[in-house]
Nucleic acid binder design. Sequence first.
RNA 1: UCCCGAGUAGAUCAGUCGGUAGAUCAGCGGACUGUUAAUCCGUGUGUCGUAGGUUCGAGUCCUACCUCGGGAGCCA
Length: 505
Amino acid sequence: MAQRVLIMASEVIREPPRLSTMLLPSPPLYAISDALKSTSGVVHMTARTKVKQALDQSKPGSTILVKGWARTIRNSKEVTFISLNDGSCLSGIQVVAEPDLPNYDEVTGIGTGSALAVTGLLQESPAAGQKLELRAQQIEVVGGADQEYPMQKKRHSFEYLRTIAHLRVRSNTFGAVFRVRSALAQEVHRFFAERGFLYVHTPIITANDCEGAGELFRVTTLDLAHPPLVNGEIDFSKDFFATGTGLTVSGQLEGELFAQAFSDIYTFGPTFRAENSNTARHAAEFWMIEPEMAFADLADDADLAEAFFKRLCRFALDHCGEDMNFFNTQIDKGLIQRIEAVAQASFARMDYGEAIERLKKAPVSFQFPVEWGLDLQSEHERYLTEQVVGGPVFILNYPKEIKAFYMRQNDDGKTVAAMDLLVPKVGEIIGGSQREERLELLERRMLETGISSEALSWYLDTRRWGSTPHAGFGLGFERLIMYLTGMENIRDVIPFPRTPRHAEF
RNA sequence: UCCCGAGUAGAUCAGUCGGUAGAUCAGCGGACUGUUAAUCCGUGUGUCGUAGGUUCGAGUCCUACCUCGGGAGCCA
């Protein structure tokens, strides 16, 4: 029976759906074999093989079909070499074309960036540089590229490549960045799934601007040229949601609600901040991972953050080897050694008070003052993680005045149970806290900081009924990717970066 | 938003004392039986960011603006 189903399935793939079968669900279009899609009229007898598979698993002597984009073309009178890359791995496959091809003239004339479908014999390469190569029997120019193609074989500056973000993904560096990014995103989900964390999709559109994490982007359907007014002010009761709304700056508050039902949860989604930040570390749209645990305190929170961060380092080293080697040689010479050290390290933990003492005793002069009660500046954070500790360090228990209203107040009356994880080169990469679970203390703190308890009544309800000690943190996904790849600008680890004045692509 | 720097060929950059611009790579033409940032020969390439100003004369000096980059703040 199973065999019969298989045969039927293959028949479905070979033939377009007929009227008599239309009562059944239509086979998905993508199931139609590439073999039938050739526009040249020539039917390829082999299914497409990805370059990674061809190089890793295929045996010399087999005939395969690969499809991809030409990175470099080197031709001489009797032989032409094409490096074909399809994004499945950093390496391209070397296609060897000789004049016996019927369209050899066409092949020698193609430009960098052309899309090709190559059928050929996989064979061991007689020359150095690659083990295997593809001796072409047939080359179809699927999509040509002329000399206007803006990417050259030569190395380009990242600044220039940002202006062609739609094409830069075809380069070695950005191929590696986005393969690592994808692999790490999947590992984030695996990490939490293994620990029984619930993945929650918190809303993108929000009506609360209470967290103070940044300026909101406004979301509205009002006619901006003629907005409805009440007493000279815009009347948001006429807006789509009957209230002022914006894009979320954090999923944390909603994440806390879910933690009070599912115990351990996390969010992983886009976050938006309308700050006019012009730095290598800030984007207006970025992705953030925010776990939240009920029945947990600050130490549990730091434990989770440490396990999480080390796991991601280990994963990048073990499963993104080719791309990581590329970063280690081309982008950041000490990268692998540094990440290896972090993956094995025990992260230091230091109270804010001790950090201040250390900074005061430091034999260097800082541009900004060091005083208990003042926030740590970038230069201070860098000194702590790079000079004092020489590795990742949690700074714990900050003065309450410089931290958010929801953080749990410590018994000393001066500090809150906040933590920042600082790492060399990047600085702050994780920020988290134990949350204030005591209703009265939370309400008092909101009053002090001028946050409306009416607008957050749903948040306060979790403290009213079945409140638990709980804690969580936020990890900026792009900062993680920067740290793991050695890339120094956030705009180069996100596909189409949104920063002030930039929303193209 | 503040401070600093930059903007010259398709790309990366040089351009001296103020005298209307040059290198490399890419491109194009040719050569080459195995290249791999291929090599060799030949060849073309400019609103010098924009607008003013000083000057006999401005890529160069001055002013304003625009854009980009670095640093800072905000934070992840």
